[in-house]
Computed example of a mutant assay.
Amino acid sequence: MRILLTNDDGIMAEGIYMLAKELEKEYDVTIVAPESQKSAQSHAITLHQPLIIKEVKLDGLKSKAYSISGTPADCVRAGIEAIVEDKIDLVFSGINLGLNSGMDIIYSGTVSAAVEANIYNIPSIAVSAEWMQGTANYKIAAKYAIKVLKQTQSQLLKSNIVLNLNTPYNLNDVNKELKICTIGGAILDYYFIEEQENGERTLTIRGRRETELEEGTDRYCLSKGYATLTPLRYDLNNLALMDTIKEWFK
């Protein structure tokens, strides 16, 4: 199986290295990732300047690796269109430093890279690990990523879907139940407002507001120490309102 591996933390990030190390034991892996940190880029692509592709040697890995002067979505497009000559069977995105649960997935470059693969009719898995004390438990996230791949491979490769995998920091047992669940609710940030001498104001994100966790969602299950897996769909049509809107224009 031929896998394209990307992320939004950059080509030199520890998370992508850990996932590549596990995947290349059994699969043909090509790494295509941003040359620098591109978190929270969502589904942005580069339009007004050329993308620069550089082959990079990652010590300890046998997989070919390339850096892209663009976004995570750019990396998937470049990998498919210009770098990997043969058919790509699956795209992995991650391991992200920090969870991509709840409505954070809207802003996530990690998840958006997986969605970009879906646009090309390639199944994908986004992998994220909880950030704590400046680091993440990439080891358990990589193990769960392999577990998900092996348990879903026969069906996954027949389907054009996105799977979003998250693992909590304190989880160490790959045999613990994996919770298949829905996306949690909104996650709101605190903004610190500061007045400047020139009359301008600056807004800085400093922490997150406490919100009630809905039972059965990814955020709830993660808080209970479980890894979570959520199938995502990016059809933006609100079909339930289609007939209603038509009536408004009669």
Rank of each mutant, 00 (worst) to 15 (best):
K158V: 01
K158E: 01
K158R: 07
S159A: 08
S159F: 04
N160A: 09
N160K: 07
N160H: 08
N160T: 12
I161L: 05
I161H: 04
I161T: 02
I161K: 01
V162R: 00
V162S: 05
V162A: 04
L163W: 03
N164Q: 05
N164C: 10
L165R: 04
L165S: 03
L165P: 04
L165H: 00
L165A: 06
N166K: 00
N166F: 04
P168C: 00
Y169W: 05
N170L: 11
N170I: 08
L171A: 11
L171H: 12
N172L: 08
N172I: 09
D173E: 11
D173F: 05
V174T: 02
V174N: 01
V174W: 00
V174D: 00
N175W: 02
N175Y: 07
K176R: 11
E177H: 00
E177I: 03
L178Q: 06
L178A: 03
K179A: 07
I180A: 06
C181A: 05
T182H: 10
G184K: 01
G185K: 01
G185S: 12
A186L: 11
A186P: 10
A186M: 12
A186D: 14
A186N: 13
I187V: 14
I187W: 06
L188S: 13
D189P: 07
Y190P: 03
Y191P: 02
Y191H: 15
F192K: 15
F192C: 12
F192V: 14
I193R: 10
I193Y: 14
E194P: 01
E195A: 09
E195G: 04
E195D: 13
E195W: 03
E195V: 04
E195R: 09
Q196T: 09
E197H: 01
E197Y: 06
E197T: 11
E197F: 06
E197K: 08
N198H: 06
N198F: 10
G199P: 04
G199C: 08
E200Q: 14
E200I: 11
E200Y: 11
R201V: 13
R201E: 13
T202W: 03
T202L: 10
L203N: 10
L203P: 00
T204V: 12
T204P: 05
T204Q: 14
T204D: 11
I205F: 07
G207K: 03
G207M: 01
G207W: 00
R208Q: 13
R208C: 07
R208H: 15
R208L: 08
R209Q: 15
R209G: 15
R209W: 12
R209L: 14
E210G: 08
E210M: 07
E210S: 13
E210A: 13
T211M: 09
T211I: 09
E214A: 08
E215K: 14
E215S: 07
E215A: 11
E215T: 08
G216Y: 04
G216P: 08
G216M: 06
D218R: 05
D218C: 01
D218K: 02
D218S: 04
R219W: 07
R219M: 15
R219S: 15
R219H: 08
Y220T: 06
C221Q: 13
C221S: 12
C221H: 12
L222N: 06
L222G: 06
L222T: 08
